[in-house]
Design a binder for these strands. Structure first.
Lengths: 139, 139
DNA sequence: GCAAATAATGCACTTAAGTTGCATTTTTTT
DNA sequence: AAAAAAATGCAACTTAAGTGCATTATTTGC
């Protein structure tokens, strides 16, 4: 717990009770979560607070938002090294399983560079692979 | 107009007045359009009809939906060759300009193959580059 | 340690996009 | 031309996201 508090402080996020709990919650999940997922895990707190908390995390480089094409925003913790470097880009790809609806970060897969026509300047890349994940394809 | 009617029929879409107009509308735009964009172009018709029309187009391989991360679905005509082949995948990438909010298909840029861990089966890929487009970077 | 200032939280409400049900109109089929 | 099928238009609903503001908690200056 003390460790989490330190991480939050490093990112200039005041470690309130809810924030510590949410960070812990995100750590426990291996997959990206929606705001609804978070809500289900916190009976006590209000949706708005949870919404603003995750947005605060995002703004301060603790989590990144993932748009996997389901139409609902998901969030996942930044990798520690990425977070530490203050790197907001998170240039890894995501895999969305259309069977179980889970989305995971494939952080060891970097996104290949793509050269564009003259005048196009790339600042960010979103790459989502869709299909069946390892768990579901084994069934 | 006769040409459009032929294209619709080839995709088993009955060429009603609105459908012909919408196809024409999509042809005139070089960029992907939202349902709102379409609505603005059609005073006469109802939003629901336009919605169902674009969904019919999508289902029958005339257009593909693009999720560029803005949270609003966009649509663009399939390339003729892709459409003819009945290829539903449209494995090209998209560029979203964060300045003018326009999204274009870069149909001549194919998406590089990415090898995934055991058990992951890829069925579809969504690759969106974000940044400044040629028009906006010249300003 | 206490008061003032600042930040976080909770509740109510609003917005926007997507979607569905159903009656009406149009088109197709026989 | 009548019956069947498909398309259209209107109203209403759903869901996720976001905002305003009062209340509560925390931090800062003295």
């Amino acid at each position: 717990m003390d460790e989490i508090e330190k991480v939050l402080r490093q990112h200039r996020v005041r470690p309130t009770a809810i924030r510590l709990l949410m960070y812990k919650f995100l750590q426990e999940r291996k997959v990206a979560v929606t705001l609804n997922d978070i809500e289900s895990g916190f009976d006590k707190s209000d949706r708005t607070t949870l919404y603003r908390t995750i947005k605060t995390f995002e703004k301060n480089g603790l989590v990144h938002q993932i748009d996997d094409g389901t139409g609902v925003a998901k969030y996942a913790l930044d990798e520690p090294q990425t977070a530490r470097a203050g790197n907001t880009q998170n240039l890894h790809l995501h895999f969305h399983c259309t069977s179980c609806n889970e989305t995971v970060c494939l952080t060891d897969h970097t996104i290949p560079h793509i050269s564009l026509p003259e005048g196009f300047v790339t600042q960010d890349v979103n790459l989502v692979l869709k299909g069946t994940c390892d768990k579901c394809s084994r069934k």
